[in-house]
Nucleic acid binder design. Structure first.
Lengths: 135, 135
DNA sequence: TCGGCCGTAAACATCTCGTTCACATCTGGA
DNA sequence: TCCAGATGTGAACGAGATGTTTACGGCCGA
């Protein structure tokens, strides 16, 4: 599936297309501003420091980060991470998006990565936090 | 339905036919001067900046933008967005056209996109604002 | 065996948006 | 010019979506 995804249709301002560097023909490296994702070994780093995401958290993040700038609907995220149909009223995606948001906010306070689209889903885009994180 | 729509027969002055760029065989991109519509994930952009439309607002806009230069009657818009018959005296379409107009005016002040045809309906056409916005 | 980590689930809190109504303004015909 | 209907405008409300917190139980390594 990762093979089929396309570059986001529009080159948004600060949002750069992910840099995919092939290392050894297997590893993949996704970069978004301060964030570095290494899908091959479930790692996330900021400034070289590891962000302690669990398996599910990482997969949730990856489901979004693979389509930067695009709105991904919950059922799609669910299918990608948990597999199968998303049960009605299931909140798993929301809960894990929150967990990821928290950990990313700790590691990279100046940036906001996951954005909510009401009634639709979530969108991954690196955007600078307005205030700078003083709050 | 989006598949069946044709380029509008009307060769309005500044109104260019929408450019539809297929990306990944799924995405669709409608362009009208500064406006970019991405039906696949409910996004609208002006100069790369996202216009924060809600679901209904987007659908209302899309119902018009899919037929640029043509006058679309309220019942048709209603059926496309809300589904079913439009109740007598219903003002939903009007209210949402206004909301869309406001947001588009903020994002793209130099252009006017939605035009009223009294007693008939609305027409989507990108037209430059005469004065430049100072009214 | 024990303790900590993790995923799940449920409940509560908060926020957003669609709907609806009331009133203002405009249009076109009489 | 006047009137009736159409359209523009602004705001309040409630339902539902999303955010947040907590508790529970299983798993796994020490």
């Amino acid at each position: 599936m990762r093979a089929g995804h396309t570059v986001p249709p529009v080159g948004t301002s600060s949002q750069a297309a992910p840099i995919r560097a092939r290392l050894g023909g297997e590893d993949e490296l996704l970069r978004f501003e301060e964030l570095e994702l290494l899908p091959s070994d479930y790692q996330v780093r900021v400034h070289g420091v590891r962000v302690p995401l669990t398996m599910r958290e990482f997969e949730t993040l990856l489901a979004l980060a693979e389509r930067p700038g695009r709105v991904v609907m919950r059922p799609e995220i669910y299918g990608r991470v948990w597999g199968g149909e998303m049960p009605r009223r299931d909140r798993s995606v929301d809960v894990f998006v929150r967990k990821v948001r928290l950990k990313l906010a700790v590691a990279s306070p100046e940036w906001r990565y996951i954005h909510t689209h009401f009634g639709i889903g979530y969108r991954f885009t690196a955007e600078r936090v307005p205030d700078g994180g003083s709050k």
